[in-house]
């Protein structure tokens, strides 16, 4: 880190509270924070936010693995060891369906604002940052199906 103004330091405060700063950066950030009231307050705020994170259920990884195994087994009727055959013949078929319907749909989406909040009432949804370049005229991922999304990502990448 070459600069040490508030803006640069604030970009790094998440790494500070996560103890992920490299030694040289940490010295600079610590020195700044200890003499800056605004950054000290922000560190405090970030810690409060961090403490409110949802914790993944302890069994989540195991549950996902079981569900994945069951999903692919149920499609083929084969026990584990199934995948080499099932994935190979299923995926090209799925991809061709997407190719047939996906392209036209994807680029129609123009400016869906995100839906947020449990009842969909978001008092701040229209207050986009003025320098947020993706407000209008750009396809939003929010409403795409997974197949459409996968295709879009493929097209963007390819």
């Amino acid at each position: 880190m070459t600069k040490n103004g508030c803006a640069d330091v604030k970009d790094l405060l998440p790494e500070l509270i996560r103890r992920e700063l490299e030694e040289s950066d940490r010295a600079v950030v610590d020195a700044h924070v200890s003499s800056c009231e605004s950054c000290t307050e922000e560190v405090e705020l970030l810690r409060r936010i961090e403490a409110a994170a949802f914790s993944a259920p302890a069994s989540l990884a195991a549950d996902i693995k079981s569900a994945v195994a069951a999903e692919f087994e149920s499609e083929t009727g084969v026990a584990p060891g199934w995948a080499s055959r099932s994935l190979r013949w299923r995926l090209p078929a799925a991809a061709s369906v997407v190719l047939a319907v996906g392209t036209a749909v994807i680029w129609q989406r123009t400016q869906a604002l995100p839906e947020v909040g449990p009842l969909g009432q978001d008092p701040f949804a229209v207050v986009w940052p003025s320098d947020d370049a993706d407000v209008a005229g750009v396809p939003m991922l929010a409403d795409l199906s997974d197949d459409e999304l996968a295709l879009l990502l493929e097209e963007l990448g390819g």
């Binding site: 993944a56 989540l60 549950d63 996902i64 569900a67 994945v68 999903e71 692919f72 994935l87 299923r90 995926l91 090209p92 799925a94 991809a95 997407v98 997974d146 197949d147 996968a150 295709l151 990502l153 493929e154 963007l156 990448g157 390819g158």
Partner: peptide, 18 residues
């Protein structure tokens, strides 16, 4: 989360690594 992994693995042929 569970559904995300299932869908990702089903679509993995279309992930090209870009």
């Amino acid at each position: 989360s569970q559904n995300s992994f299932i869908k990702a693995f089903k679509a993995v042929a279309r992930f090209r690594g870009e």
